[in-house]
Nucleic acid binder design. Sequence first.
DNA 1: CTAACTACCTGAACGC
DNA 2: TGCGTTCAGGTAGTTA
Length: 273
Amino acid sequence: MPELPEVESVRRHLAPRLEGRAIVAVWSAPQERFGVLDDAVGRRINALGRRGKYLLADLSGDLELVLHLGMTGAFRFHGERAADGSAWLGDPYVRASFTLDDGSVLDFRDVRRFGRLTVVPRGDYTAIPTLAQLGPEPLSEQFDAADFYAALRRTRAAVKPFLLSQRPVAGVGNIYADEALWRARISPLARRVGRERAQRLWAAIRVVLADAIEREGTTFRDYQMVNGQSGRNAAFLVAYGKRGSPCARCGTPLAKIVLGGRGTTYCPGCQRY
DNA sequence: CTAACTACCTGAACGC
DNA sequence: TGCGTTCAGGTAGTTA
């Protein structure tokens, strides 16, 4: 489900309803991927931030609640209905609930159980390796084009799996990797990316993510915001999920391959190796 | 150290 | 209709 734009959209919905509130009770299904959430009880949520695809709730007591949506995770306040009238009451896929001091209850639903919720000492990500090694925020000053080029030069992996590793830049997943590489006219299979192409990819990542945030993310199947609504970005995709469609730039039918175990759509005509 | 697999889950969509 | 197969927006653990 969720890459940076989706997680950011969720964060923006949740932040005003969580910040300043205290957590008075926590329930979670027994699940190995969840750490001990009991430590969150009695803590106040000072701020709800985000790094890459991780939501980070800064808690009183020098703790931090780390929330990751996995592939199918979503949040909703208990009893609230989506625009289509659907609700999660009695839903077997609700895996955790947080009761707040204003009486509201935040439910976490996650069909595939790839999501992760855990409390850590603030800033201690040793138990979460991807977060510990996470690259710079793509829409911040920390994401520097020259550094990005240097990172691309250092790796011998194909460019798309390298992006998905979260090390050169945070928050790019399968959809936006395909979209950014299409924009930058770089094959996902490329193992050498020169200065000029690195600059194009750097800019493409920023544009693709910023546009998607503005449209509150891409809904293909599971992703929804806290109010149950879909993101509006799917209609603007030009590569992901477009196998067989003519390339919007050169007309060549887009090809789909498997790369690093992930479905990958690109234009064999104008995305150069 | 890195890169490349595989495993983890469950449901929807598709082919026969 | 029913059954088997494939695929899905992510990450962690293991192996070379």
